[in-house]
Every structure is written in structure tokens, then in C-alpha cells.
Amino acid sequence: MRAPLPTPSQPSPPVVDIQPPLRYKRYAGWILLILIIVMCSIQTKVTPYQLITGLPQMGQLLKEMFPPDWSYIPTIWAPMMETVQIAILGTTIGGIIAVPVALLCSYNIMPNRFIALPVRMILNLVRTIPDLLFAAIFVAVFGIGPFAGMLALVFFSFGIIAKLTFEAIEAIDPGPLEAMTAVGASRLQVIRFGVLPQALPYFMSYLLYTFEVNVRAASVLGLVGAGGIGLLLDRSLGLFRYDRACVIILLTLVIVLIIDYSSTWIRRKLL
């Protein structure tokens, strides 16, 4: 119902003085932040002094990185591709597992909190464990090699994608769900025709984002023996071959940039 039209005979309400919000709150916030930073620095003994004394050594390291040892590329090409392949497998499998779990912990799909809450707890637990720890555990279980790395990325991607997707699902327009219920759709049909078309572009976008993150993550998995380029990176650093490490870093950069640009382009098309 619309509001009734104002009648001109009514007197206009008296003008009330408006006070601008006080500024001290904002200043207090800044002071608090600075205090916290100073406290942290004192407690951990991490000071700008160390940065200044370490600077010459950083320069030395950079100098040793150049010129990069380009002849190293044929050696690192296969492990580099293995890194990307581990990332593709890990992201895809993790993403597929994330879908039903994300549905289970969205309150608008699963009003039963006895299911949604425990699932969310498990999800939080999975996200607490860093990817390298996952890799180290799986290396211990399945032995050294890319399988352990792939499995680590499955869990890692699952945690990220499930979390982001369930938040996207909770933000969808409830109207189409209502319409599908009114049409006589079953629970799964409501999800298929009401939720999926709305959530799919977000899911794809998160999948691509996680893939980017995973390529970077996969390049250090080798440090714990979980396959990929990380093993060679570790070896180069151990032998003080910074020129080789530099080539690995540059090649990773090129691949990450390619994936970054193409996934940004695809995501723009999707949303």
C-alpha cells in the first residue's frame, strides 16, 4: 500500500540540530592500531633494523640470480608441467566434492542446523590445515610423489571452494526457489532449477580462482616431496644456484600470469 499523499495544511516538522559524529573514536582507532604494531615488533624482536642490516645481502643474492641460467629450462619443463597438472587434478576433484558439501551447509537449502553446523565445523577444520601440512601428511601416508601433492590440493581446494560457494548460495535470490516449490518440484529439483542456475557462475569463478592459487601452491609442494617443481627449487637453493632458482621463479611467473589473465577473462564472461 502506498503512503497517503501529504496534505499542504499540515505544519512542517521543526528543524532539529544535527551533531556531526565525534572524531575521537577514529583517532583512538588509529592509535590502537599503531600500539598493536609496535607491541608485536617488540615481542617478536622483528625490527626495521634487521631489514637495513640485511639489505646488502639481499643485493648480493639478486646479483647472483642474474644472468639466469636459461639452459636449465629443458630440465625444469617436465616438473613444471607436472605442477600445473597436479593443480588441475587437485582443483577439479576438490571442486566436485565441494558442491554437495556447500549445499549441505547453506542454511537456506538445509534449514536443519543439526546437519549444517557439524558440516561447517568440518569445513573450518579443513581450512585450518595449511596445504604444506596436508602434503607432508600425505607424503608420509602415500610416499613421495605427485599423488600426495594432488591429494593435498584436493583438500585445500575443497576447503576454499566449499566455503565461498556456500556463502554465494546463501546470498541467492530466494524467489526462484519459492517459485519452484510452488510448481511442485522435489527438493533436488528445487536445487537443480532454483539454486544451480544462480550459483553456478559463482562456483565456476571460485574454481578458477582456486586453480590460480593452486598453481602457486603446487610449486612449493615439492619442498616436502609431494611432486612438482618445488623439489628442483629446493635443490637449486641448497646448491646456491640462484641463477637456476631465478629461472624457475620466472617460468612460474609466466605460467601464473597466463592462467591469471585467461581466468580473469573467463570469469568476466561468466558473471
Binding site: G175, P176, E178, T181, A182, V183, G184, P197, Q198
Partner: peptide, 17 residues
């Protein structure tokens, strides 16, 4: 669900995908 199948519903906000 069978009863609802035979009843069409139209909403103020259309509720289309």
C-alpha cells in the same frame, strides 16, 4: 507436490531465473 503441480503461482517479483 502433485497438488502444487496443478496450481500455477504468479508473484509480485516474477521469481524467474
Amino acid at each position: 507436490r502433485l497438488i502444487r503441480r496443478d496450481i500455477g503461482m504468479i508473484f509480485q517479483s516474477f521469481n524467474l531465473i
